[in-house]
Design a protein around this nucleic acid. Structure first.
Lengths: 299, 299
DNA sequence: TACCATGCATAAGGCCATTTAATGCATAAG
DNA sequence: CTTATGCATTAAATGGCCTTATGCATGGTA
């Protein structure tokens, strides 16, 4: 077993490296953005530690001693390696954006638009992972999250993206099958998708339609808007959905929203990330992009 | 031209290296001889600089992030290189002792005894260089000097080795050739080596012998005691020499010192080295050795 | 389930390493 | 001989870093 010799102060080594490279205290000071006196001091510190002079002080010029000559190349190399590793790490840190979100948002909103972000930031690799729970940024390697909630997470910055509004939606054909949906109560004559969803009760209450025993009605509980939206588009029933997630279907007529009445249960979808990383370039880039997208789509 | 990205604080990098190696803030703190809080602080500093977390904080355990994984090996390697270079430089600095002295001292005193120093310090390589002038330690790569003078050099430590006493010496045969040298004036009947040397005038004055026109007497001016000593041993004349330099010749009878009268001109031989290097191991070793030798030989 | 041990985060405060500014000194250049 | 360059040195100011103390979350244990 051998005891490791403690390294001399790294500041001194860094200064030495610069001096050795320039062959001048003054020039090294300039490169390091410090004063010649500080350089002189640090070299003295290092010489004390090494136990021998590192430079010969000739008038208007210094020269490495043998000891200095042996030390300098290795030190320079070590610093180059450090610098390279740091730059690489920093680059890598900025080159991949990991997004954690929930399946609904990913498939109904993000998937369609993410391409424009990647085109705008070709050097950024995006890794999209869908997870059921809000990620813990201190434990998982995730840059940003998109989650529903109230926007009050401690330590996190949260930007409201879209409200979790909901309203019934169905295919035009299904509506026509009963001669059109004129008033809320008409919906009860059609199969409801996932009738046990509390959103139904809430919406019918807001519409002043008595609707008991909803949960006992037949209907599959699929639990994710994406699936229910597909089912509704296929004409299998009426779904209660968030319009913002089905802007495309509404625009091209695959789905219709028979009533303007929107409900919401106080939740919204939020973009979240740690406060401490507010200024990370890739996070800023994504924030700027997604808020822009929201602005566009809500017009 | 590319602008070099300034490295993050090296303290933080060093701490990171230890943490990455141990996989623990606490253990790294122990290795570094500091507190866990300091480690936590430095890691945070570095994470700010890199722009991304380097560790995932799992309960009772941390793990490197991808960025951290990319950074860690290179950093460890760089520090190993630094450490190795430092140890090597330090070893080299302590492994060679450069002595600058004058020819007389080297040949008449040092050469005979240096062997015992090298035996006592087999790992120390000794480089002996003879130069006419007192070396400037800040300009020449020299560890210690041996010079004559008054011992009052600013910035240097000076140990008095031997006094530059002088007294006439000659071979026993030469003395016998005139029936023995009984009193100082007898010397004037023999050839003097380098009669122009001011030492002769000084010594005869001290001996109360009138001796004018010494410099006009024939005789070679060799200027170095070593040569004059040899000439005297060979019986070519009387030399005025420093007894300490000819202890061996006096001991075995090759030379005799006819009179006890010693003169000196206020000079002495000194061991000198920079004050700042007083504690350098190799300098201490040499100082201890040579002062010991002086003690022995002056007994 | 309650309690204890482990490990990292955070806040406040102090200290010392480092820096700066000013000056001196030696030498080379003009 | 004068000027310019470059390093050394000093004292004083600064702030980065460390320490102490405490909190928080988790995992192990009775």
């Amino acid at each position: 077993m051998h005891k490791t010799l403690p390294l001399p102060p790294l500041t001194a080594i860094r200064v030495f490296e610069a001096v050795a490279r320039h062959g001048s205290f003054t020039k090294a000071a300039t490169e390091l953005g410090t004063t010649q006196a500080a350089v002189s001091y640090q070299i003295k510190v290092l010489e004390d530690r090494v136990g021998a002079p590192l430079f010969l002080r000739r008038p208007r010029q210094i020269a490495l001693t043998e000891v200095g000559q042996r030390l300098a190349p290795a030190v320079t190399q070590a610093f180059e390696q450090l610098s390279e590793a740091y730059v690489t790490a920093r680059g890598g840190a900025q080159g991949t954006l990991v997004i954690s979100t929930i399946a609904t948002f990913a498939s109904n909103w993000l998937a369609r638009r993410l391409g424009s972000f990647q085109i705008a930031h070709p050097s950024l690799a995006v890794r999209l992972q869908t997870e059921p729970h809000l990620v813990d940024f201190s434990r998982e390697e995730v840059d940003i999250g998109i989650r529903s909630g109230r926007g009050d997470w401690p330590g996190l910055v949260a930007h409201r993206l879209i409200n979790a509004d909901f309203t019934p939606m169905l295919s035009p054909n299904l509506a026509a099958s009963i001669g059109g949906v004129k008033e809320p109560a008409d919906l009860l004559r059609l199969p409801l998708l996932d009738p046990g969803d509390p959103w139904w009760a809430k919406w019918f209450a807001a519409a002043n339609v008595p609707a008991e025993g909803l949960s006992s009605r037949p209907g599959a509980s699929m639990g994710a808007q994406a699936y229910e939206g597909n089912a509704a588009t296929a004409g299998q029933g009426v779904a209660i959905l968030t319009p913002a997630f089905f802007a495309a279907e509404l625009a091209d007529g695959r789905l219709v929203q028979p009533f303007d009445l929107l409900c919401n249960d106080d939740h919204a979808y939020w973009l979240v990330y740690p406060e401490t990383r507010r200024n990370s370039p890739k996070i800023s880039a994504f924030r700027q992009w997604i808020l822009g997208e929201i602005g566009v789509s809500s017009r």
